[in-house]
Amino acid sequence: MLELLLQNLVNGILMGCVYALVALGLALQFGVMDIINFAHGEFVMIAMYLVFWISLYLAIPGSLTSLIVAPIYFVFGLVVYKLVIDRIVGTYPLAQIAATIGLMVLLRNLALAAWRAQPRGLQYEVLRGSVTLGPVVVPISRLTAALVSVGTMLALHWFLTHTRLGLALRATSDDMQAASLLGINVRRMFALAFGLGCAIIGIAAAFIMTFQQVNPESGLTWGLISWIIVVMAGLGGVSGVLLSGLILGMVEALEITFWDPRASLAVMYSLFILILWVKPRGLFGRR
């Protein structure tokens, strides 16, 4: 039992890092422009298919496709921003909900029409096997995914705190009107935040595919997990997102150990409600 718990906790921590990375894309978009994007999970799902197809046609490992998918997804983010988000940012929440839920349904059904419900997994992947640490077996794929996740988060943190553009993004996030009065083109900041958020999804998707398959419904889980983390982190910066991801990963591990793996989403969602009750501004929120 103890060994099982230990094994599940290690898995939970590794998965928590990946959860955090996926949520970071959403946190960045939500933090800078206060937009509620319900299609976030579907963005992840589409990116996973992209990883699958690029890996298949170019015959390269799925993990390596992150170098291609991230820039493609950055541009994808800019396009979605221009076509949809730019029109609803700063408007009524209802318009945002309607537009992004529409996007969610659109992407999910397009995926269903294009690829059917059959799950797809990578054909080529170099991240195989596992390392054994005492009683714990750590799959190389998950370990790499977690390390890349933490690395990407550190990179974004550095960008936000050490560059002029990063500072402008944080200023826009704090007060967009005051930022625009200082000559910061906030619409450009919104586009940048949306593109960056999507690029992060692209990186995450490539490494998720090294240990998971994708189907048109995959977005549901990733969207839910991301929203739980963003609410938990409460606009508390990159570190808040990482900590929230780790907490969620470990809660899932405990649930799997002591109860039923099939109920893990239900437990996560209960945690979400609980946080909304006790700390509606999030565990690490500043506002």
Partner: peptide, 19 residues
């Protein structure tokens, strides 16, 4: 006033030199 609450004093001033 509308200062940026989560930035430091210096960062508030640096944000003003964005242009």
């Amino acid at each position: 006033r509308r200062i940026f609450p989560n930035l430091t004093v210096l960062e508030n001033l640096m944000a003003a030199s964005y242009m």
